[in-house]
Computed example of a mutant assay.
Amino acid sequence: MRQQLYKSSERGKADFGWLKANFSFSFGNYFNPDKVQFGMLRVLNDDTIAAGMGFGTHPHDNMEIITIPLEGGLKHRDSMGNEAVVRFGEVQVMSAGTGILHSEMNPSGTEPAKTLQLWVFPEKQNVAPRYDQKSFDLKNSLNSFVNVVSPYDKNDGNALWVYQQTFFNLGVFEAGKTIEYKINIAGNGVYIFLIEGETAVSGTTLLPRDAIGITETETIELKIRQQSKILLIEIPMQQN
C-alpha cells in the first residue's frame, strides 16, 4: 500500500471577495508540480460563493464535472437548455464532451453557497454533452457509503454516471465505527476527502478538509474517531 497525505492547510487558495476557493490540485494561478492530479482526478475545488454571485457563462470540453453542494445551492444554466438549482443533498454531473457552455450562480440573496467541484478526465473523448442531477439521502444510510457516481458501463440506476471507471461515494459515520472499503476495479486508487469530523484511514489521521491518496491495495480501513462526513473516490490511476 502506498499513501500520500494532502493536508488542508497546504492547499492552494484564492480570495476574490465574492469567491473564496481552496484548490486540492493545481488550478488557475495556483500551480504545484507535486499536486497536479491524482490519477484521472484532475480538480477538487472547495468553494464558498457569496450571495447572488457566481461563475458567468464559460466553456468546457472533454471533462467529467461533478458538483456537490455542502451548503446552499447553485443555479445551473447551459447551452443544452438545462436550467436547474442543485442544492445541498444533491449531486450534479456534466459530461462536457464535444463542448458545452454553462453558468453557475448562487441563487440566494442572503446566504453563501459552499460547494465541492471535481473534474475527472473521461475515458471516452468527444461524446455528446450531457447533464444530470439527483438527490441522495445520507441520513437513511448512516454508517455506510452511498454510491453517488459510478461508471457509465457499470451503473445500477441508483447512482449518477460518468464516462470513466470511477466510483464517488458519500457517507456520514458515527464515532467509534470501523468501515472497510473494497476496491471495485483492480489497479484503481482511492482518494479520500474528509468533509467533516476526524477519521483514521489505514492508520493516518485526517482532520476536516484533509485528504489522502492510496494506491496498491485491495481494501482500506477507516476508523471513525469523531462523527464524520466523507467523500471517497475510487479512480483509475492512468487512462485505459
Rank of each mutant, 00 (worst) to 15 (best):
S228A: 13
G81I: 04
K7F: 05
A200C: 09
Q164G: 05
G73A: 09
Y163H: 15
E71V: 10
N106R: 07
T166I: 12
F173R: 05
R11G: 02
L222P: 06
S95T: 14
W18L: 00
Q117N: 09
V148W: 03
K223D: 06
H76S: 04
A186G: 04
L5R: 06
E90I: 05
V146E: 05
N32E: 11
R87V: 11
I100A: 08
T166F: 02
T217L: 07
D153W: 06
A84R: 10
S135M: 09
N45C: 04
D61H: 13
K114G: 03
T166W: 00
D46V: 08
D61R: 15
E221N: 13
G97W: 06
T166V: 15
K20L: 05
E83M: 10
G17H: 01
G56Q: 10
Y30T: 07
I185S: 11
N240M: 11
V93F: 03
N45A: 05
M105S: 00
V149W: 09
G52F: 08
L41A: 06
N155V: 08
A21T: 14
A14N: 06
T204G: 03
E174Q: 14
S141P: 00
N158D: 12
S8D: 11
Q165E: 13
N140F: 04
A211P: 01
K139H: 09
E196N: 13
H58T: 02
K114V: 14
N158R: 13
L207A: 12
S79K: 08
V162P: 02
M94C: 07
E104S: 09
E71D: 11
N29H: 14
G17C: 00
F121M: 13
V120L: 15
F145L: 02
I220A: 02
K35Y: 12
T204I: 14
G203W: 05
V86C: 01
D153P: 00
N29C: 01
S228M: 07
F27G: 01
A211F: 05
K20E: 07
V91K: 04
R11P: 03
Y181A: 08
